[in-house]
């Protein structure tokens, strides 16, 4: 069994894993990071989105062995010191979640979107989150939340909050 060394949410893990083990199952079943859920079996829904070296990936479509030597951030790794990240707060303030199941992936995908475009228009947010399905919100409040967080994160001195 291959051995991997991976940093997840600031902690380094070393594990022997089956080559076929999906990253999402490594996170959930091995590390207990169940904040990242599974919503489909065809890579469409994006509920499992995490950041790998800062870039969003659907962790159901990445093997754990492919994360060897990488830095993975899940929703559980946001908000240093028990606080919350501006993106998390914006989702709360704009009522951008209901059942909460797409929320972790949606938040992580949104962070990647802002990495590429710090001040997205409404259309750009919609396009940027096309890979993340939500069944509850009809998306509108998610778009508002991402733009609200973007505004807050653009303020001088706020860069340190991005993962």
């Amino acid at each position: 069994m291959p051995r991997i060394r991976v940093e997840v949410d600031g902690t380094t893990y070393e594990d022997d894993v089956e080559p076929r083990l999906l990253l999402v199952h490594y996170l959930r079943e091995r590390l207990g990071k169940v904040g990242t859920p599974v919503g489909c079996d065809t890579s469409n829904c994006g509920a499992c989105t995490v950041l790998m070296d800062g870039v969003s990936v659907k962790s159901c479509s990445v093997l754990a062995v492919q994360a060897d030597g990488r830095d993975v951030t899940t929703v559980e790794g946001l908000g240093a010191g028990g606080g919350t990240h501006p993106m998390q707060r914006a989702f709360h303030e704009e009522h951008a979640l209901q059942c909460g199941y797409c929320t972790p992936g949606m938040i992580m995908a949104s962070l990647d979107l802002l990495r590429e475009n710090a001040d997205p228009s409404e259309d750009e947010v919609r396009e940027g989150l096309e890979g993340n399905l939500c069944r509850c919100t009809g998306y509108q409040n998610i778009v508002k939340a991402v733009r609200r967080a973007a505004g807050e994160m653009r303020e001088p001195g706020r860069q340190e909050v991005t993962p």
Partner: peptide, 19 residues
């Protein structure tokens, strides 16, 4: 009123069956 439920969901601290 802002939702009480959000605090856990935005942190990945919900408790769904598969968790």
């Amino acid at each position: 009123v802002p939702r009480k439920e959000d605090a856990r969901f935005i942190r990945g601290q919900g408790n769904y069956v598969d968790d």
